[in-house]
Amino acid sequence: MTSPAASPETSTDVLAVANMPLLWVSALGVFLVIIVQTAIYMKAARRAGPGVGMDRHDLRVSFRSGAVAALGPSVAVVIVALSLLALFGTPGVLVRIGLIGSVAYETGAASIAAGAAGAELGGPGYTQTAFAVAFFAMSAGGAMWMLATLLLTPVLQRSEKRIARLNPLVLTVVPGAALVAAFLSLGIAEVRISAAHTTALVVGGASMGLAAYAASRLSLPWIREWGLGLSILSGLAAAYVADQAGLGLGIS
C-alpha cells in the first residue's frame, strides 16, 4: 500500500480503484443479465416440454441434474475467484467469472496482460495503471470470446438445418457422438498431466458408471441424477489422496 497522494502510475493500492461504485454496478448488471437469460430459457423449456414428451416432473429432474452437474466446475471457479479477489477486486472478479467462468482463461489472461503492462500480478509493479490495463485486456479478450460465439452460432445453425434436410437421422446421432467425443477429448487431455489427474478421471468415471448402473438395476432415477455430484466429489477426493501420495505435480 502507498500513500493516498501517490499517482496511479506508482500507487499499488489497486483495490481503491478495483472497488469503484461503477464497477459494482457493472457486476450487478452482468448478474442481472444472467438471471434474466436463465429465466427466459427455463420458461421456454417449460413451454416446449409437453410437445416433446417431457412432463413437469421430467423437466424438474432435468433442471436438478443440470444444477448438480454444475456444482463441481463451479467449485473450481470459486476457488480461483477467491485467489483473484486481492488482485482484481470483488466486482471485477464477479464480472469476469460470471460471464466466462473459465479458470484457465481468466488466470492466463490476467497474468499475460499484466506482464505486457510491465508488471507481475500482485508484484511491486502492479500499480493502479497496470491493473486498469490488465483488467481491460482481460475483459476485451472475454468480449472476443462472446463475439465469436455470437457470429459463429448462426453459421452452425444453418449447417444444422442443411444436414437435417439431407438426413434427419444424422441430427439424432451427431449430438450424442459430439458429447462423447468432447468428454473423451477432455478426459484424455488430463491423463498426460499427472498420475493424480488420471486417478481422478478414473475414479470419477467409475463412480458415474456405477451410479448409472445402480439407477438402471434398481429403477431409481434419482441415483443417476445425484451420481453426477457424487462422481465429482469422489474425483476430487481421489485427486487429493493421489496428490498426497506423491502422484501429483507437487503444487502446494
Binding site: 464480472v95 490495463v133 481491460f136
Partner: peptide, 25 residues
Amino acid sequence: TTTRAGRLTMIIGLMVSLSGPLYLV
C-alpha cells in the same frame, strides 16, 4: 425463443461487462 433471447442477453452482457474497464481507462 432461446436463440433470440440468447443473442440479445449476450450482447447486453457484453456491453455491461465492458462498461467497467472502459470507464477505468
